[in-house]
């Protein structure tokens, strides 16, 4: 009897301790949980719910079912898919132009060339400058009487009497490139810094061993450094793609919210939310944007896993 009682008391005490541990864990997790629910989950759920309603941002809501989504898929109503295509083009240029450039710079600087610190700072500088300032700067560059057209006149591409090229809005898509060029330029330094950290984390012994085996600088980079920084490359690709899908600030400064030439999902979202007061449509754009970002993040992770 004593034995059974003792066993039962011991079990009770373990149960009690487990319960206490559970409460402690819960209490420690609570602040993070509250923040997660309050800042991420609740707005997300609210966006999903609003996307099925006609809603002005206040007052009563009218149930619409999938109508807001159908409008997004109807090109004649809302140029949402054009904006997604624009974001994909930007993502493509980010991955195939911006990242290789950043990687090249990171590898070059990682070799410990002269003026490494200075060049690192110079390349990172655009990231530190406010996007508003960068936008204003490039507006001057692409202004009808700005730097680009002046250069074209100097080299003779534009002759006297020729009209200025309207880089900031001719209805033919030039505005899209005028917005993308500064976006790609601004974030080269950001990715370069990430990759530079990766290059520097490669143990010097590995480099030295390869060198002793007769590898050239390029071969060291190709077969030793780049494979060691796969995780950083993955992060950079995810940032570049999701960042392109979410792009907004520079386009907002260089174009307008109602731009069609350079529209991206976020400009459509803000146009419908702030100017047109159609929160339902804006919420539907937000939901699709989140799904697209998740999809590509998972896809890129899977692609890198496959290679591993």
């Amino acid at each position: 009897m004593f034995g059974r009682g003792h066993f039962s008391l011991g079990r009770q005490s373990i149960m009690k301790r487990k319960k206490l541990d559970g409460i402690t864990i819960f209490l420690f997790l609570l602040p993070a949980l509250v923040l997660f629910i309050g800042i991420l989950a609740a707005p997300l759920i609210s966006s999903v719910v609003n996307s099925f309603y006609q809603y002005k941002g206040f007052g009563s809501k009218t149930w619409l079912g999938w109508d807001n989504y159908k409008r997004l898929f109807d090109k004649n109503q809302i140029p949402f898919w054009d904006s997604v295509v624009h974001a994909f083009i930007l993502a493509g240029f980010s991955v195939f132009l911006q990242l290789p450039l950043a990687l090249g710079l990171a590898l070059l600087l990682g070799r410990g060339i002269k003026g490494e610190r200075f060049l690192l700072s110079v390349n990172f500088l655009p990231v530190l400058i406010s996007t508003v300032v960068i936008g204003q700067l490039w507006l001057k560059v692409f202004h009808p009487e700005g730097l680009v057209n002046s250069l074209l006149r100097v080299v003779g591409y534009l002759k006297e009497g020729d009209k200025n090229i309207q880089w900031l809005g001719d209805g033919q898509g030039k505005l899209l490139w005028a917005c993308f060029i500064p976006m790609l330029w601004q974030y080269v330094g950001y990715h370069m810094l990430l990759m530079y950290a990766g290059v520097k984390s490669v143990p010097p012994e590995l480099r030295e061993a390869a060198k002793i085996d007769g590898a050239t600088d390029w071969q060291v980079d190709r077969f030793v450094v780049i494979p060691s920084m796969k995780q950083i490359l993955k992060v950079s690709v995810i940032f570049a793609v999701t960042g392109s899908l979410k792009s907004y600030d520079l386009i907002r400064i260089m174009a307008t919210l109602q731009t069609k030439e350079a529209s991206v999902p976020s400009t459509i979202l803000m146009d419908y939310m702030t100017l047109r007061g159609e929160y339902g449509v804006a919420s539907a754009v937000a939901v699709l944007l989140i799904l697209l970002c998740f999809f590509f993040a998972i896809l890129i992770s899977a692609a890198f896993k496959e290679r591993d």
Partner: peptide
């Protein structure tokens, strides 16, 4: 005009100026 109608109106005005 209400905001949603004004948005559609401005869209067409921009197209007129752009010759679309």
């Amino acid at each position: 005009m209400p905001a949603d109608e004004a948005g559609k109106y401005l869209e067409q005005v921009a197209k007129v100026y752009g010759g679309e």
